[in-house]
């Protein structure tokens, strides 16, 4: 098996935490992993992305080639649209629908969502709604990961283990909200199918 994923979002949304959860899950399964991250200046509210690749066979490149990603997982709709050229023709798009409008010329949201909805299969999730339900407005990143979980080809237990590992040392309530957010996202995604 092999999965090539583009993670996209805005600095400060918790994209690296999603990458870390995936990394821990993949490691716990004894699979190989390459995960290119963005550190430094771009993290300050700018567009951030990460390439995550895992397989049971050797992985050469740290970067995913355009037209080959199995999945684009985005925490923000415009950032999802920025990377669709990476998707393979039948690749999956999963994105939060709520925009982060921290630039003066944010494009027409309806147009963004329409372009995203034209990609099949897709999951466009209002993550804030489910994160609220999970008990933490900050858990939107885990909700989106949950919504993407049916397409990751990883056992859910491994992902839950990844969340536990990444949020170890955080207050119990934070861990619980993140776990619940992930579950709500996963349930929603299965229900949509």
């Amino acid at each position: 098996m092999k999965r090539d994923i583009i993670l996209a979002g805005v600095g400060g949304q918790g994209l690296l935490a999603v990458a870390a959860v995936l990394g821990e899950a993949v490691r716990s399964l004894g699979l190989r992993l390459k995960q290119a991250e963005v550190h430094g200046m771009a993290q300050r509210g700018g567009a951030v992305q990460s390439h995550v690749r895992f397989s049971d066979r050797p992985i050469y490149s740290d970067l995913v080639r355009e037209g080959t990603a199995d999945l684009v997982l985005a925490l923000e709709p415009m950032e999802a649209l920025r990377y669709i050229a990476y998707l393979r023709p039948d690749g999956v798009l999963v994105s939060d629908t709520r925009p982060v409008r921290n630039i003066p010329d944010y494009p027409d949201l309806a147009r963004i969502l329409a372009e995203l909805a034209a990609i099949s299969p897709h999951r466009l999730v209002d993550a804030a709604l489910l994160a609220e339900k999970a008990g933490s407005a900050q858990a939107t990143n885990l909700v989106v990961l949950g919504a993407a979980s049916p397409f990751l080809e990883l056992p859910e237990a491994a992902l839950v283990g990844g969340i536990r590992a990444v949020f170890a040392g955080k207050p119990d309530a934070v861990l619980a909200a993140n776990l619940r957010g992930f579950e709500l996202g996963a349930e929603w995604s299965r229900a949509v199918a």
Binding site: E66, G67, R82, L87, P107
Partner: peptide, 20 residues
């Protein structure tokens, strides 16, 4: 040659980093 892929969208605007 390049692989068969979707055309990039022209809609997204640049999102440079900013002071917090």
């Amino acid at each position: 040659g390049a692989l068969d892929r979707r055309a990039a969208s022209s809609v997204p605007a640049p999102r440079p980093p900013a002071l917090c």
